[in-house]
Design a protein around this nucleic acid. Structure first.
Lengths: 183, 183, 183, 183
DNA sequence: TATGAATGAGTCTTCATTCAT
DNA sequence: GATGAATGAAGACTCATTCAT
């Protein structure tokens, strides 16, 4: 599908395929063959562009991180737009929680990073990014508390089918953002 | 260590070895061989007692769940003892977050359950258990919000080396437990 | 199901289970476990009564042979009753060909006997038995030719779904029984 | 013997080894390892070219079928040459029955096809092929009867050490080819 | 006598990785 | 540069068989 004479594109295409597969098969289920098939490139291409399986996994997770950060940029805009912070954040979070592949891949990233320190900067990018955005409006502690709560809601959504509803999110986030104010 | 001809003990021994390995190698890294070596039983014993690798993983996670619930019973006692709820909970959580193998295995359980619905009841046991304990003191929504926050703190601790400090935990938990009061 | 205190019956029960399984899984698919499950006896019973898997297979095939010879006795009666030989034989054969498990197990027996000379007497029992019955009415050569044809019809039925029809059987058998007359 | 980097040849070589082993160990006794050793290729090569054991077995049986059909082509020529049909066919059959590996593998094919419908077309190739050849000279029913008889002689030869002698074959085949004439 | 536990050999199969082309 | 072939290690799993009880 992609001309062999576009190395950059090929490499991205492979990383993207790895990213797509992550929520489906998990980090432990990723293989060169699976990625090659999904990316519709020959098997050799996957090892050519990513020397080892770990590299390939890292590439998939890096792509995931990029997507997460893209999403974060959107959050930043909405939040900057100004309405009530807890409200806005609750809405954004509720939307996010409905995107199961995304929260799955985020959690895969976290757990992979827990086992391999090399991946931690990527995992922290989401946390730090969102914390940074919120810090424009509340204290760092409050911001971090909100982020922690949101990540708790993510894992909650993974196993409880029915995620926390928006109203509850709003109330909790309001409480957290309101606390620490004096800190 | 465990004499043959003690099927019950043997089976538990194997499950325990699987449990021990989970934080070290993750669900995806668990193999019959690894478990057999750790449990110091012949390879065949692992498949004799647990027909498939999935069974073996489930056994390890079930053991983990039992340990988590044990821990929860201790929490229940301390909480019942009566001091300020947010204080107590913050202390318990802070201790818990320092037990890296434990929070690793909890997260492994969550992610595994996310992929395999059959494991979800085990994953929910912790959440529901703690929620139940807290519901004796606060509204269900507040209880659940606190639990969500604690689980967020767990994944935070996994990748940020330095967990949330006790004071921040206390303040956040107090805010969450205090909110929802009217709900 | 069978009282442990009826060794003879137990042994027969196991052999019978092996026999039942043969058309389903073939000689190569027979295992102690499968037989134990089918016979509803503990695993140990299968190895207790039949030292080795080969013994167990032989027992199943011996049971099959006994069944085949029983069937042959019925044939002998019908044939002795007197109607036209080719007619009678064609009818009997047509019925037989419709009993797929039976012709499957007969062929399993043949092939197993082809590989293991020790089983050949059992395989020959059917051929020799039927030949003997027919020899009362036609020359040995004609009898044997008819038997050979019938066994050809058996393997034909195995793979062609639709067996040779009775009319064709009758005509062929009549021709074979009529030939060799001078021999 | 066969250089790597000749995929076609390699694949054929493996199929051929499987084919050679079939009369020796039977379908049930065929393993990747056995085939790899016989073909003098590494173990991985067998699974590289034939994804599953079933594929490997099918490949061996397909090779067998090809050999059978080759033999049939020779029969066609001899038969076309013209001498008395029953005579010719009896001679060809007698020769065939002396080739034990060949008749073993033919029977393995039949039985395997009995269990797995996917293999039936291969099993029928021989039957249909020979029937077709004979149909040029006699009625379809007569042709098929002769083929059935020949296959009966095959299984007979497998277990009776001494196959039917040529004279008897001739007489039986003559009778069968002569019958059905009016049909 | 009878049986469930136990095990080690052996099977299929998958895959990361290497390499010739 | 790119790729399909190639392979050896490793894994899950099955089972005949043995043996303590």
């Amino acid at each position: 599908m992609n001309a062999p004479r576009d190395p950059e594109g090929r490499k991205r295409q492979i990383a993207r395929a790895a990213y797509e597969l992550l929520p489906e098969v998990g980090v432990g289920g990723l293989t060169h063959r699976l990625v090659a098939a999904r990316a519709e490139v020959p098997l050799g291409a996957t090892t050519y562009y990513y020397k080892t399986l770990d590299d390939l996994i890292a590439a998939g997770l890096a792509h995931a991180t990029a997507v997460l950060l893209d999403g974060l940029a959107a959050w930043a805009e909405v939040i900057a737009a100004g309405a009530d912070l807890a409200d806005t954040l609750a809405d954004l979070t509720a939307d996010y929680l409905r995107d199961r592949p995304r929260i799955l891949v985020e959690t895969e990233l976290y757990l992979a990073a827990a086992h391999r320190p090399g991946l931690r900067p990527m995992a922290r990018a989401w946390i730090d990014g969102l914390t940074g955005i919120l810090t424009a409006h509340v204290s760092p502690d409050a911001a971090r508390a909100a982020v922690v709560f949101i990540d708790g809601a993510v894992v909650y959504a993974l196993i409880c089918d029915r995620p926390i509803d928006t109203a509850t999110l709003r109330e909790s986030l309001a409480a957290l953002l309101g606390a620490h104010r004096t800190a």
